[in-house]
Amino acid sequence: MTAYIVRRLFATIPVMAVVAVFVFLLLRLAPGDPAALIAGDDATSADIEAIRMRLGLNLPIWTQFVIWLSNIAQGDLGVSIFSNLPVTTLIAQRLEPTLMLMVATLFVAVTLAIPLGVCAAWKARTWIDRLAMVISVLGFAVPVFLAGYVLIYVFSIQLRWLPVQGYTSLDNGLWACIRSLILPAIALGTTYMALIARITRASMLDVLSQDYIRTANSKGLATKRVLLLHALKNAAVPIVTVIGIGIALLISGVVITETVFNIPGLGRLTVDAVLKRDYPIVQGLILVFAATKVLINLMIDISYAFLDPRIRY
């Protein structure tokens, strides 16, 4: 297992290299020029060129790439063109809100989805199953922004129970932090809940039709024990996979939720940087996202060995 983990970690290097080249070229080939944005309406061509020189954007693209790569090798992701702050600082500032939102969303999604999926499979083709799947389809179908606005209107504007927007850091108290995450976690978690519930149901249905489940039932084991200990554990591999994919998506793909609820996370940082052509931030973020996804995939693969003893690396 250790050898496998080391091998997989080394395998991330070429993946990251491909991502680095791809991101760098894509950004430079896309239209847009941060120098023109900085210079504004009144700028002359000479003004814009002077800013491009200052930012090093006038250098040949391969020279820029080599400079960037050598900085990365020294752990330096660069400095934001606009705020002049190190990219690492900007990412660090946004990490807590994103991680907290991710944890809250997964909590909402997993705690609702697995019971829902198990019940639907257990009571397959009954009204319980159909109700569970209706909930699940609705979870998929309702856009996050719409769910967000409705939740804000009901719980923040009408009932005044929860804040409309913003993220309260853990430094200001755990409950204050949780309050600021309840609505975004529900809005975003609904989609993931739907996905996990459907996968859980499908996986459980498959396991529940196996001989050993029939044997367990015929031996007179309690239904709860059969479902949770025998069936759910054996159905866990696809469920864990989809949860893992969810984690990877949540780290980088929660822009709409962050926008609607004004959470200063990594998703908004990415979008703002792309719109402003703040190249160092976009490059740094995508590298971080790629590394995170590779590591999460590795963790999922390792978890298979624990969930299913037949799997060995």
């Binding site: 804000i152 504007i157 005044r160 409309v164 913003g166 926008t259 609607v260 609820f261 004004n262």
Partner: peptide
């Protein structure tokens, strides 16, 4: 960033 959220935040007094 979101216009609707800004408005709701003002209405809620945030």
């Amino acid at each position: 960033a979101d216009s609707q959220t800004k408005m709701q935040a003002l209405i809620a007094g945030e």
